[in-house]
């Protein structure tokens, strides 16, 4: 809206340049410009009011906390009324609220297309990726909180350190002792094997699953769904070879590994990348059992 104003002014002044200008005319133009500005302001105000009247806004209730500011030391919820447009996501609404009403509103985001994994939050009672969640799918007021079961650093930002530690604990990278013969030989994966691990490769490290998990909440050492899924991705990768598989299963079988999973399916339900987490964990459990059962 505001970008239209200077344009108008320029147009008028160039018109004024073309004609020989008298002082009176300049005054007239000045007045005209003021009137136009006034009108525009009024139109904007009316539009905003109309939007509010027609309930074309969404009511957000946003968790606020900041240990460094006296007034925000005690967590509270702030209300924002954000004008709605078709296709608006929760992240869009948060950004509008931040840019328009309160620049101190703090949250993580980057790609805005469900790929960087930085904006998982607790929206209307479940863990969701804000940039992937349509406002129109939500009931009002839209309640936005930082991810549960993590410490809040500020507003909607939680400390992800523990989540990352668990991810690192399963050695989330390709390792193998079975390289192909020739120096320049490529190491191929079969199509079937690629299909098997396909879904598990989609994780964007958003932490939604871990936050939804009751078990992870009660047992801080539990590797958690995302890390176990990451382990699945490599354990099931045939190119890593039998040696590596044994090594990986050893990590997974530990006390706070796969056996902590109680198949509550909360992780599978919240994963924004639709990874069948519980299924993968269950398969790892069976793999672990098969690995240890010997009938001779």
């Amino acid at each position: 809206m505001s970008t239209q104003l200077p344009e108008q002014v320029e147009e008028e002044s160039s018109a004024a340049e073309a004609e020989p200008t008298s002082a009176a005319q300049e005054r007239r133009l000045e007045k005209k410009r003021q009137r136009a500005e006034e009108k525009e302001r009024q139109r904007q105000a009316e539009e905003a009011e109309k939007a509010l009247d027609e309930e074309d806004t969404y009511h957000l209730k946003v968790f606020r906390y900041d240990p460094e500011i006296a007034g925000k030391k005690e967590p509270r919820f702030d209300d924002f009324h954000v004008p709605y447009h078709k296709g608006m996501t929760v992240l869009d609404a948060l950004m509008y609220a931040r840019d328009t009403y309160d620049s101190s509103l703090t949250f993580r985001h980057s790609c805005r297309q469900a790929i960087c994994g930085s904006d998982a939050m607790f929206v209307n009672g479940s863990q969701r990726l804000c940039c992937k969640t349509q406002l129109s799918d939500l009931e009002e007021p839209v309640r936005i909180e930082p991810l549960p079961h993590a410490e809040v650093v500020k507003d909607l930002v939680v400390d992800m350190e523990h989540f990352y530690d668990q991810m690192e604990a399963v050695e989330p990278y390709f390792q193998t002792n079975e390289l192909p013969e020739g120096e320049l030989e490529e190491q191929h994966q079969t199509r079937e094997n690629r299909e098997k691990v396909k879904m598990s490769t989609r994780c964007i490290w958003c932490g939604a699953c871990m936050s939804s998990c009751n078990i992870a909440a009660g047992d801080n050492q539990y590797l958690g769904p995302a890390a176990l899924n990451k382990a699945y991705r490599f354990t099931m990768d045939e190119r890593e070879g039998e040696d590596m598989k044994q090594q990986r299963l050893e990590i997974l079988e530990q006390e706070h590994g796969v056996w902590r999973c109680q198949t509550q399916f909360s992780c599978t339900e919240v994963c924004p990348k639709d990874i069948p987490l519980t299924e993968h964990i269950q398969e790892l459990k069976r793999e672990a059992v098969k690995n240890n059962l010997k009938f001779w």
Binding site: Y65, P67, E68, P75, G125, S126, P148, H149, E151, V152, V153, D159, N214, A217, G218, T263, Q264, F265, S266, E269, T278
Partner: peptide, 22 residues
């Protein structure tokens, strides 16, 4: 620097948001 631990009450208070499997 400092962070806010929402504590056990919050953890248990989530039961309203439990899904079927939970």
């Amino acid at each position: 620097s400092q962070s806010y631990n929402r504590g056990l009450i919050e953890d248990f208070g989530r039961w309203r948001e439990f899904s079927a499997g939970m």
